[in-house]
Amino acid sequence: MVTTANNIIFELKQVNFFYGSTQALTDISMDFEKNRVTALIGPSGCGKSTLLRLLNRMNDLIDGTRVEGEILFEGRNIYNADNDPVEIRRRIGMVFQKPNPFPKSIFNNITYGPRLTGTRNRADLELLVEQSLKQAVLWDEVKDILNKSAMTLSGGQQQRLCIARALAMKPDVLLMDEPTSALDPISTAKIEDLIEELKKNYTIIIVTHNMQQAARVSEMTGFFYLGRLIEYALTTDIFTNPQVKQTEDYITGRFG
């Protein structure tokens, strides 16, 4: 894989991460390319979520955590003291494993982020809500109930709402932590289509336990095991011709 430097949006250099005294990530060096879908796979507890949350400094919210190494976003180390995590999170959106809409109306869920950054004009907000919901393929289902509580939606609808909410911030990157693990096959298919659509304009990094999903949606795949990056390559190569035995065992389900 040959890449030019300006294609790389995230660059990790020898990253170690600790929860208190337990090390969750060891010596991770990897690049993420712009406008691509990168999948992170690996057994439970191997540190995928931890890595994802490092990229938008969500781990800062947990007491006693520590980062070593460099994480460059567009060439700047996001862990430099002069980088505001709030600013970073506005540019790097996140979708969580469990749908987590606010107990507010659908409309207010979407406009929560934009309002924080100063969008107040009603017409602008309405336009943004429509755009984001259309992008997340939810508009047709909710356009008549925008003032109803988001808690009344189904799980799959809630997850698409959370995606729409992240998109309303117009981020550069979308981090998705097992976005379909709580969803039925139909909702899952919708979200996969959505990822396909979104990658034209966004960089997407997705954690998944579903091998088919990783194979379907991503161009690059990284396999993690016990806090280490074992293999990182083109998805087609990982799934047809893995170089490391552990990777092969994992994707063929012979792990253990």
């Binding site: 709030v86 999170r89 996140m94 969580f96 987590n100 606010f102 929560y112 982020g113 909410r165």
Partner: peptide
């Protein structure tokens, strides 16, 4: 629930905004 707080922070809210909103 912690999920609400995380959702808010992930959208770039400050601590104060998260508490109030």
């Amino acid at each position: 629930p912690n999920e609400f707080k995380e959702a808010s922070y992930a959208l770039g809210a400050t601590k104060y905004e998260t508490i109030v909103k």
